[in-house]
Write a protein that binds this DNA or RNA. Sequence first.
RNA 1: GGGCUAUUAGCUCAGGUGGUUAGAGCGCAGUCCUGAUAAGACUGAGGUCCCUGGUUCGAGUCCAGGAUGGCCCA
Length: 1094
Amino acid sequence: MIAADRVDYPALEHEIQRWWDENGVLQRYVHRNDQSDKQYSFLDGPMTANNPMGVHHAWGRTYKDLFQRFKTMQGYRQRYQNGFDCQGLWVEVNVEQELGLKNKREIEEFGIARFVELCKERVFRFARRITEQSIRLGYWMDWGNDYYTLSDENNYTIWHFLKRCYERGLIYKGHDVMTWCPRCGTGISNMETLSEDWHEVSHLSLYVLFPLIERPGEFLLVWTTTPWTLAANVAAAVHPELTYVKVEQDGQIFYLAEERLNLLRELRGRDKGEYRVLERLKGEQLVGWSYRGPFDELPAAQGVSHRVIPWKEVSASEGTGIVHIAPGCGREDFALSKEFDLAVLAPVDEFGIYVEGYGWLTGQSVSAVARPVAENLAQKGLLYRSQNYRHRYPVCWRCKTELIFRLVDEWYISMEQLRYEIMEVARQVTWIPAFGLERELDWLRNMDDWMISKKRYWGLALPIYECQQCGTFEVIGSKEELRERAVEGWEEFEGHSPHRPWIDAVKIRCRQCGALVSRIKDVGNPWLDAGIVPFSTLDYRHNRDYWRQWFPADFVTESFPGQFKNWFYALLVMSTVLEGTTPFKTLLGYATVLDEDGEIMHKSKGNAIDFDDAAERVGADTMRWLYTSQDPEQNLRFPRIPSREDVERAVREGVPVRLSEKWMLVRRALDKVWNIYWFFVTYANIDGFDPTRYQLAVERRSDLDRWILSELQQTILEVTASLERYDSAHATESLQNFIEHLSNWYLRRSRERIWKSELDDDKLGAYLTLYECLTTLVTLLAPFVPFFSESLYQNLVRSVQQEAPLSVHLCDWPQARQELIDEALVQDTHLVMRVVGLGRAAREKAQIRVRQPLNTLYVRLPSQADQEAVLRLKDQVLEELNIKRLELLSDDSEMLAYTLRAQARVLGPKYGPLVQKILAMLKGLDAHAASEAARQLREQGVLKLTIEGREITLTPDEVEVIATARPGYVTAEERGAVVVLETTITPELREEGLIRDLTHYIQDMRKRANLKIEDHIQLTLCADEELAAMVQRHAAELQEETLADSLRVETTPIAEPLPGELYRETLSPTSPRKLEGYTVQVIIAASPSSAAIH
RNA sequence: GGGCUAUUAGCUCAGGUGGUUAGAGCGCAGUCCUGAUAAGACUGAGGUCCCUGGUUCGAGUCCAGGAUGGCCCA
C-alpha cells in the first residue's frame, strides 16, 4: 500500500481513467448484471448535441450516474443508454453561423441537402465531444450504444404517434396569428419561449389621431407600441363600460378614457397646452363610429372600413383606453376580426418585410419603420406624440431577434380533450420535488394546442400530406405505408434518411380526389423527437416484449425549469396517446446552476464556466460531491474556479492547484477521508500490517471500536435508504457525519493505540476496525466519487486481496450488519463527546491549556443512566482532557445550584391564565429558594406553591430542574449537564505539564529535521539543574514518545556539533517557544539503529 | 393582471400539530489541540423571526391586511 500525503484530484482522476481503460472496467461494469433477475430501467433525457457540455449539464449527469451506479452495485440489470437530441432549429442556427448564412433564402440557395448534411455532421461532432466530457466526469454509460433522435427509428416512431393522433382526429391545420421570428422565418410557440426570452427593450410608441368620419375635426386618440402594425389597422376598440371624455386641447378635439386624462398632463411639453373636458360619455356610445385609417391612402387599405368596436379586455391602466386593432398582427385582434367580421390585413412576409400593396412601406423591414411611420403620420397631421417606451418583449429563444406577430398556417395537436387524459397520467408519477405535479398540472390546464410544425429544414419530416386540390389531408404512419402509397419519387428517396429534401421527392395520390399530393414542407417540433424516446429506444414498433420489459422507466431526471412544458410534457403527451399510461415512474427535478454570486451563467456575461476547465482545476469528483450534496430544489451556486494563472503557477511549482475556500469546504469530507486513509497506510506500512492475515471478533474489541462499527452500520442504512428515495443530499450528509466521527473521534482516540509498539489485541482491534470502516466507506462513496474511491480501493483492498473484485465499481453495495448496531453505546459515546466538550470549555474559562494535566473533573448529568455511562467510559473523557480522576457530583453538592423551569406545554391546558403567574414565580426564585424547591421536588416528588391564595402542586414532569454551577467554581454547563474543574496545579502536575510541552517541542523539531515518523534518534538535552532533574524523572516516557534510543542530560550547553547531529535548538525565556522560565538546549542526532535518515 | 411561493444571524438556510432562553453550516474574533489532517475542538460577538392589526394564558408558528423578492401563466 502506498499513499501520498496530499491529493492532486485531477491528476488522480486521469491516472484512474487510464487504468479503467487498460482493464476494460467500464465494459465489465455494463455487463456485470447481465444475468440478474432484478432490473432497473433508467431513461436518459437526450442532451442536445449542439455545443460542448457546461457545468450545468454535469449536475444532471451526476445524478444519472449516481443512481445507476447505486442500482448496479445492488445487482440490477440495466441498459445504460445515453441519448443525444439532434434535430431542430438550435442546430440550424449554429450551422448558419458557421456558413455565414443570414436567412432562409440563403440556405435554399446553398442547398437544403448540403445544409442538412452539415447539420448532421455538427450533431455527430458534438456528440463525440460530449461523450469525451461525460467520460471525464466519470459518467458510465454504454458508450457507443447511444441513441440519436435523428435516427430513422426515432423519426418513424413519431410518424406512428402522429398517425394515431390523426386517427383520433387530434391533428388540424390552424390559421392564426403567431409569434414569429423574422430571422429564422418560423413561428415560435409559447412552449418554446422561456421567461428569460422576454427582454427589456425600448420601443418607439406612438399616440395617433384617428379622424372620425361623422364628426369632422374630431379624433380618437390611440396608443401603440408597434407602429409597423398601423398600416394593417381596421378597428379601434373601447371598453363599453368605461367612461370616455371628449377633450379640446390646442384647438384639437379628441376622445380618450377619462382615467387617462393624467396622460395629457404627463405628455404636456413645450408644444402642448392646457386641455378642457367637453363631454363625458360611456364607451358603448362610441361603438359603431367610423374613422379614416392612418394609412388609407395605401392600395392594401382600399375598400377597408374602420370602425369602433367594443372589447371588455380594454384596460385603462395604460395607453389611452382606445386600442388599435390589426387582425393580421395580433392574436386577440385576429379573434376579434372573426367576432366582428373585420377585414384582415397581413402586411409582412416570413422575413418581416412589407409585401406588395403597402406603397412606400413595401420592401421595408418592420424593424426599420418605426420612425418613418411616425414622420409620415406627423406630415399627415395624425401624430399626437411619440415617446420611447421600455417594456418586456419576447425575442427568439435561439437567435434573440425580436419576435413579431404574424398570420400563418401551422399544424397542431388539439389538447382540448387530451389534456385531461394527460393530467390523469401525470398523477401516476412520483414527482420529486412534490410540487412538480402541481406545476405540470398547471401547465396542462393552461396550455394551448401543441403547435408541431416549423417552417424549417433540419428536423422530423412531418408525414402530413395535404391535397392542394380538395383541401383534405392525411398522415402517413410508417415508411412501409409511404412506400405503398408512393406514386412517384420513391427511388429518389430510397437509401436516404427520412429528412428534407430527399423525403419530399415522394408523392402520393389523394384518397378523396386523386390529385398528386406532396408532403407539407414543414418539419416537426423537436420535443416530439425527445418525447418519443420511451418508445423508439425500446423497439416499440418491432418488439413489444422487449419494450414491455423496460417500459415504463423507473426513473428520469432533468432540470425542472422549462421541462414541464418541454420534455416532461412531450413524454406525457406521447405516452398518453400511445398507451394511456405514464412513461416514467419517478421524476427527479433539479434547479438551476448559478455562478458564485447567484447570477445566471451566460456566455455573454463572461461568468459561464467551461466543464473542461472545471474538471481540470477542481476535479470531477469534487464537482460531483458538490452536486450530490446539493438540495435539488435550491439553485446551485457554482464557486469560481482557479484562474489559468493559478494553474500555471501550480504547474511551475509542481503542486496541486490551490482552491478557493468555498471549494475547500465542498471537498473537506473527501480530504478528511484521504487523511484517515493516509494515516492508516502510513502506520500499516511501518508495522508491516496485512489486514487479511488477522482476525479479531468484534466482541473482543474495545468500546471505541464497537461504537464506530455501529455508526458505520447506521450510515450504511441511512445512505441506502436515502438513495432509494433519490435523496442524494441526505446520503452525503450521512456520509459526512460518519466521516466526521471517524476522523474527529475514532481516529483521534485511536492514535495512541496504533502508535504503541507491540501488536496486541487492542492495536489489532484498532487496525481491523479502521480498515473495515475505510473499505466500507470507500464502497459507499463509489457511486458519488468514482475516481477517488477507486484509487483508495485499489490501494486498500486490491493490493492485499487478489481475489477481491477488480474495481470498487464491481463490488456489491454494502449491507448493514444489524448485530453490530449498539444503540446504547452510540448514545453513550455521544454523551462522552458532550462531556469532553464541556471539559474543554471549563479549561478555556480557567485559562489552563490541555497539555497541563489536572487532578479532578466533577461531573453531573441530568439522568442516572447518563452518569453511569460516563463512569463506564470515563477513560475516554480523562485521556481527552488530560485529567486524572472523574467524580460524580451528588445532588446536594455545594458546587451545584438549581434553576426551575416550568413546562408551559403541560401546565397551559391545566391552569390556563394562571400559567403566566407560575412561570413568573419560578423564574423569580432566588438561588436559595430554588435549591430548596429542587430538594422538595427530589425528596417529596412534588412542589407546592401558593399563588393568589391558590395552592398549586407541581409534579416532576411539570417542572424541570436544571442543575447549574454555583459561582466560584470553574465550570461549564449545558441543559442540566455540569462539569466542574479542580484547578489546583500541584508541583507534580506542573512538572508533568512541562514534560509534555517539551515532548511536543521535540516532536516538532523531529519534523523540522525531516525525520520520518518511525526514525529513531539520540537525544541530548542541556538544561537548568531544576529542569534537568525533571527530565531525569520522566526520561522513560520522553524517550518512548520521541523514539529516542538514548537520552543524555547535561547542565551546561554544548557548543561543538555532536556525531550524526541533525538538529539543534535552544528554548529559553526569550525564544518564541518557551518552557516557562527555563532554558534548554535540544540536540537531535541520528541513531545507529535507524536505517534511513534524510 | 391572475396563480404559486418566499421574507428568520453578515451569507446560505432549518425551525410537524402554538409553550416562554429561535437553531445549523459558513464567515468574523479569540483561545486551544496536533508526528494523519489544506484538519480539528472550544468560547464569543452577531436576531424588533418583513410590517401592521387580530385570535390566545402564551404567536417565528394560526388569521386578516400591507410591503418586498422569486417562479409560473397572461
